Amino acid sequence: MPTTSMISRISRPTPRAVRVLALAVLVTQALIAVTGVIVRVTGSGLGCPTWPQCFPDSMVPVQHPEVALLHQVIEFGNRMLTGVIGFIALACLLAAWGVRPYRRRLVGLALVMPLGVIAQAIIGGMTVLVNLAWWSVSVHFMASAVLIWLATVLVKATTEGDQRPVGVVPPRMRKLLVALVVITAAVLVLGTLVTAAGPHAGDPDTPRLALPVPTLVELHGLLVMAYVLVLAVFGVWLRGARPTRTLLKVYGAACVLVLVQGAIGSVQYYLGVPEVMVVAHVLCATLVIIITALLWCESRYRGPLPEPTPKTTAKESVAA
């Protein structure tokens, strides 16, 4: 009869299964950032005014004279999505742990995901408890940005090896990528400050950041222009660097996305930041994070994906 260890070998997850779960983690991490902004622009940030409960003595929304039911449902739905992400992240970690050969880097990246979900839940709870103070909302979004970046790296790790990375592009271009990552982080941080000073606080009674919005918008725009400039220089140098086809595709996508994002940001500002445009802007921001992370990953090579350990079939197990 086959033993428990034999059965476990038969049912080990495949690299493809890990890749699918990693993609699901990435998609849901980006989705939680978008649903978070929906909570904010609809004024539902305090739809559930306590944490971890929705209301005192209730984990779920209840009829309340001071809080509209729609706001409760939107905020509670965002909290439930966190649980879904946590479940998917845990499944990805278990799959990465079980795949053979064992890959330490892959497991490490997968481990960050459920830990990050826990951290995000705590930050989200803190945001509610401090009544959506602008700095807490900024921290909440930046934590999501970091997790989206790492989830993108995780997805890439499911398609490559574990060797020491070798540059696909010359060192000067890798330095440009470092600058691009720094500028991306600065754009995101300043974007959260624009939001903190703007009209969409998540709740009508939340105090705003006491800085002039036009000045913040101008600084934000200058950083976006710096991103475009660095990206353009990278593209000029890329022509003579013998890039891979994938790197060229990612670069092209990055150029398109940053231009679309800039257009959305400009239109949203001149239209008075309507809610739909704000959601579109954040959605595009998550895509820019992803494409910048992919540009970083595709500019280095870690060798081929390790060959999976051959499975032991049930017939062979019984015979053994």
Rank of each mutant, 00 (worst) to 15 (best):
R9H: 11
R302V: 00
T42H: 10
L219M: 12
P61H: 00
I85T: 05
Q268A: 11
A285I: 03
T286M: 13
R172P: 00
Y102L: 13
V187W: 01
W149M: 08
G36P: 07
V236Y: 07
G265V: 04
Q72V: 03
L238F: 13
T246A: 09
L248G: 10
P207V: 08
A253Y: 04
E307H: 08
L305I: 07
H64E: 03
V27N: 05
D57G: 05
L111A: 15
G235R: 13
R300Q: 14
V217M: 11
I122W: 08
M113A: 14
G36E: 05
H140K: 06
S266H: 09
S266C: 02
A320L: 12
D162C: 11
L247Q: 04
L180S: 05
T4C: 06
S136I: 06
R164F: 15
L150R: 01
A22P: 00
I291N: 01
L294T: 10
G235H: 13
P214M: 10
P101Y: 10
G303S: 12
A143K: 00
L209W: 01
S11E: 12
P15W: 05
L26S: 02
T4W: 13
V166Y: 09
V273N: 02
V128P: 00
C48A: 08
T192D: 06
A226F: 11
W97R: 13
K249Q: 14
P101F: 11
T184M: 11
Y269P: 08
G36V: 01
T246R: 12
E66Q: 15
T158D: 01
W237I: 00
R242E: 12
A179W: 10
V182G: 09
V112N: 02
R302I: 03
L247W: 01
L271M: 12
L209H: 05
M277H: 12
V258A: 09
L247Y: 00
R12F: 08
M6K: 14
V256C: 11
N131E: 14
T3S: 15
K249F: 10
S58R: 12
H64M: 08
